[in-house]
């Protein structure tokens, strides 16, 4: 049905947004959605088309006469930018379209500005969220917005497994969920707390959405499987501490932000080929042809 795993991801995120607005009592102004999507796509165009184009015009001919000119009317990486913007629409809330636009621009800018050896290490949407939480006074995240209803959890889990199975990153989500659930279970045991409290904490729709769709961005997380497992466990541990020691309701976003710079270190320690969406697409086509 989808040629690219990212198409599936875009479809699912758009569906979640639709579900949130229609069944979860979210009040999202269309202007905010529009500002987010437009700012992400515009920033993507600026960073992948206009700036390279200008550089080529200025220096290109002298340095590399064979370089093909960047066509101005193209938008490479639009899928990734759209995924980032949908992620922001789902998670970030703000009073003004300007705040959403700042989040969108900073999210996309982080991909080109914060790179190490050609790879960006911040999850763009997460970076945008934390940036506006830090820089502005009129943005927030609503961790309770999905509630804890089994039907949504099943839906998220199904959609997440489909996309993650495709890109081969399901173990990252699993490692995070198992370690976070384990830590919460240990805390419940220590507190002598009833188990339905643990079940309630663990069945938060926002937690599942984060674990399945934000934590697993294959382009920004460590390349080697072992490194990813370690990284996911570290994020779970940090989330647990921030939540229960510092009472931060948005602990998961801060943890991912704080630990993202570990990615280059882990990549240096455990080397593996970097993720390439086109490779996944080629592999699938090959499998189909062989089949």
């Amino acid at each position: 049905m989808f040629k690219d795993a990212r198409d599936a991801q875009i479809a699912f995120l758009a569906l979640f947004l639709l579900l949130g607005v229609s069944t979860r009592d979210w009040t999202l102004h269309p202007s905010l959605l529009l500002a987010t999507i437009a700012s992400c796509l515009l920033a993507q165009w600026l960073s992948t088309v206009l700036i390279p184009y200008a550089q080529q015009r200025r220096l290109g001919a002298a340095i590399a006469p064979d370089t093909r000119p960047v066509p101005l009317l193209s938008l490479p990486g639009w899928r990734s930018a759209l995924i980032t913007s949908l992620g922001l629409c789902l998670l970030l809330r703000a009073n003004s379209p300007l705040t959403m636009a700042i989040a969108g621009c900073l999210a996309i800018a982080s991909k080109s500005l914060l790179r190490y050896q050609g790879k960006h290490f911040f999850n763009p949407a997460n970076f945008g969220i934390i940036a506006v939480l830090l820089l502005t006074q009129n943005a927030w995240v609503s961790p309770g917005q999905w509630g804890a209803e089994p039907i949504y959890l099943l839906f998220f889990a199904g959609a997440g497994c489909l996309v993650l199975g495709w890109v081969g990153r399901w173990e990252t989500s699993a490692a995070f969920l198992v370690s976070y659930g384990g830590l919460e279970a240990a805390r419940s045991l220590y507190l002598h707390q009833a188990w339905d409290i643990w079940a309630h904490q663990f069945s938060s729709g926002s937690l599942l959405l984060f674990a399945l769709f934000m934590l697993t961005d294959p382009r920004s997380i460590p390349n080697a499987r072992g490194a990813r497992l370690l990284w996911a466990v570290a994020i779970a541990l940090s989330t647990f501490v921030l939540q229960h020691q510092f009472y931060l309701p948005t602990a998961i976003f801060w943890s991912l932000f704080a630990l993202a710079p570990l990615t280059p270190l882990l990549d240096a320690r455990w080397q593996a080929p970097a993720f390439d969406w086109r490779a996944v697409y080629r592999r699938d086509r090959q499998t189909l042809a062989d089949g």
């Binding site: 703000a94 009073n95 006074q137 927030w140």
Partner: peptide
């Protein structure tokens, strides 16, 4: 409502 109520302040002035 098995858990105690936990709140957060937001910037939402609507």
């Amino acid at each position: 409502f098995p858990e105690d109520l936990r709140f957060q302040q937001t910037a939402n002035r609507e």
